[in-house]
Design a binder for these strands. Sequence first.
RNA 1: GGCGGUGUAGCUCAGCGGUAGAGCAGGGGAAUCAUAAUCCCUUGGUCGGCGGUUCAAAUCCGUCCACCGCUACCA
Length: 510
Amino acid sequence: MKPTFYITTPIFYVNGAPHIGHAYTMIAADVMARFKRLDGYDVFFLTGTDEHGQKVEKAAIDAGKTPQQFTDEVSAVFRDIAARMNVSNDAFIRTTEPRHYKASQALWENLIEAGHIYLGGYEGWYAIRDEAFYDESELTTNAQGQRVAPTGAPVEFVTEPSYFFRMSAFRDRLVDHIEANPEFIGPAARRNEVLGFLKGGLTDLSISRTSFRWGVPVPGDNAHVMYVWLDALTNYLTALGYPDDEAPDMRFWPADLHLVGKDILRFHAVIWPSLLMAAGLPLPKRVYAHGWWTIEGEKMSKSIGNVIDPRELADTFGADPLRFFLLRETSFGSDGDYSRAALVRRLNVELANDLGNLAQRTLSFVAKNAGGVMPKRGPTTEADSVIATMCSELHDIISPIIDRQDFSIALETIWVAIRAGNAYIDQQAPWTLRKIDPVRMEAVLANLLDLLRVVSTLLQPFMPDSMARMLDQLGVPPGQREFAALATPLPEGTALPPPEGVFPRFVEAA
RNA sequence: GGCGGUGUAGCUCAGCGGUAGAGCAGGGGAAUCAUAAUCCCUUGGUCGGCGGUUCAAAUCCGUCCACCGCUACCA
């Protein structure tokens, strides 16, 4: 039986336009999912939308719609983004689905039975204008002697009844778990932040609200709806069929990887594991917080007006080059900067010149001088072995790198092989061999095609469409494209279709 | 303020105890199969400052400077 692999993106909050950051998380998760599928895993890849909360309720009202109408529309946009980015999610969950209400309420009842929820009062300084609570330390006194929030909004001390989750009781166990499992939180710097945060102790968590209605009702107390994060986090279980232990997809739990943005690591690395421990459920194996993108050196923001719809970039450059750029340009745990010039540079230098041109020069040479079929392999020279060894080891080198989400390093490693391929073809000079040693020429071309096959197979998770086309041209049948198939060389004499450029250079209009 | 991190070639970064590295950018050359793409060679750094440990420090320790992150319920 295949091993399982369950990967999630956060569910995206429907209170705003989707931007490059949303696409980034989806694409990274997609690369993981595709990589694991090709590596023989039974994969469940989940994404979706988070649709509850006061902000959504308000945004709907402002738009003159019911919350349901509003969230239907925005959720569809995120679904479209996933499709346009060529994201291969197995399911798309919405927190407004009936099955999610059922799962959230079941988890709640589970926590009640275990004695980890109690009714208390949520007290704090509330600014009506901001619809937000502020910590006492944030407040200042204005000229009129009023207590005001950092935004300048007057605040008042309010108390509302609220259910609390006894999160404080789980701090020690959580710290022990993080220390015993170094891979539980990545990257390491974030792990340290979480540990530092936990050192200061955990308080109980207010997990219900009475101030608005757009949420999952608290079982047995309809005056309350669940705190949006409680409801949101539960989505990872809902999608598998929780609370039905017999649901076929429940075999995917615990999740192998929750990919999240750095802004929501806390919820996934502290609150979520605490809730799971309280409910007696196994913890996810890893939570990874990636960085954010700036745009042409500036922070992405509506007021600057530099928010980019990833669909526009995909229309201009293609989904695959965009996917490649986002994972190649910057270390996954760090912030990155998108600039059009940088994207075009990656596209032209690495995709068109290095990889695309290597494929094109090799394949067109085979078409013209080797009968358009996989040439005959020959005796191995020293230079051949260097290339062959590099290729045969590539998967095993990449695999643990992918498991750490070091996508840019994985790509750099593959590019070392591609550059070696360009050096090899120049040194071996099949155009010279054609005249003096046609047998050796065939062997050289076969080695190059073998290299291209390894490279395109391993790059499929990053650029699925482009690599499918390249593998077509390399004569690799659709059933021979998983990683395990690399052990079986393409038979000599296999007919190769006429070559066709996969990555045209991008030239800016004048 | 507290905790943590970063500072290495023009740019982005790797190296983290043993005579400074990669990619891109710059310069020179080769080749002409190919998307004028490729390959080879090369310019360039007192590895943030100062002090210490060591036979030996970018690499360990101290200190100073600069920048960044986290510091509880906003998705």
